[in-house]
């Protein structure tokens, strides 16, 4: 009997090891990197000198791509939310027997690599491609303008790549809604639009929260879309970090910037969850 008292703790061991190996150690390593002596180099080595000025320097040098990342990610998340909601709603309530097929289609892009998908957007949005041609024909775009290498292309890429992360949680929470609740709302004098606002939307809130987080967080840290679909003027913080790590070898600045990005995202997520409220998430 006495031996059983510690069984629970032993069962936690795999999870704890996993956390230590894939979260705690990398996190400490990153934190240490952000406090490196900036005078070091990849070859001569870096010492942890608690050089907190790295954070100030990184903010000072890279506040622009940092803000741009948050802005692009926010816009992309908003667009994903609108598109994803319509899509998830249609699949959950209107698609009938087609719903599983549509769900597979939502996930289908994952069958190809992220890189290939983004590269194919480059072809679609090409200056001589049919999208630009059509928009020019319709005079939405001027004859000399383009989509590639503009914020539109980068945000479109983010929306495309992260839409499934929005659709799936939204679908999961919409699909769970008892259809009789919507009938009940109608029975209780709520027009379809009021019924949506007062019943369907609040009940899908867990999906909205999960979807926006799953979209915003990776979008804010993404660098593939900006580097393939954007120009140097659309660089996001991910590109800067990647450059600092691989080309410049400035580990201290790269680490500081990564920690700053992480801190900003954690803070935003906490404020968001507190305002949106999770106590109702049944």
């Amino acid at each position: 009997m006495r031996r059983g008292r510690f069984t629970g703790y032993w069962l936690m061991l795999p999870a704890a090891l996993w956390l230590a190996l894939f979260f705690v150690i990398p996190f400490y390593s990153l934190l240490a990197t952000s406090l490196y002596d900036p005078e070091g180099s990849v070859l001569t080595g870096y010492d942890v000198t608690y050089h907190f000025a790295n954070f100030v320097d990184a903010l000072d040098d890279f506040w622009e791509p940092l803000l741009r990342s948050l802005w692009y990610a926010a816009v992309a998340t908003a667009i994903c939310l609108v598109l994803g909601y319509v899509l998830a709603y249609a699949i959950a309530f209107k698609a009938g027997r087609w719903s599983s097929l549509l769900l597979v289609l939502v996930i289908a892009p994952f069958f190809t690599s992220f890189l290939i998908r983004t590269l194919s957007w480059k072809l679609i949005l090409a200056d001589d491609g049919f999208v630009v041609d059509t928009l020019q024909f319709l005079h939405v775009l001027g004859d000399d303008s383009r989509l590639l290498a503009t914020p539109v292309a980068v945000i479109a890429g983010l929306v495309y790549n992260f839409l499934p992360f929005m659709v799936l949680p939204l679908y999961a929470s919409l699909e769970k809604i008892d259809g009789r609740l919507i009938e009940a709302a109608g029975d209780l004098y709520a027009s379809p639009s009021r019924g949506f606002l007062k019943v369907t939307l609040p009940l899908s809130k867990p999906g909205v929260i999960a979807g926006t987080l799953l979209t915003f967080i990776p979008a804010a840290g993404d660098y593939i879309n900006a580097s393939l679909l954007g120009s140097p003027n659309q660089r996001m913080v991910g590109n800067v970090i990647q450059n600092l790590f691989t080309s410049t070898g400035d580990y201290a600045a790269a680490g500081a910037l990564s920690v700053i990005l992480m801190a900003i995202i954690v803070a935003m997520v906490m404020v968001y969850i507190r305002t949106a409220g999770t106590e109702e998430l049944v």
């Binding site: 390593s29 490196y36 070091g40 070859l43 080595g45 942890v48």
Partner: peptide, 15 residues
């Protein structure tokens, strides 16, 4: 304790 642990993650001289 965390601050104390961090120096373990220094990056060595590669020469």
């Amino acid at each position: 304790a965390s601050l104390g642990v961090l120096p373990l993650f220094g990056s060595p001289d590669r020469k």
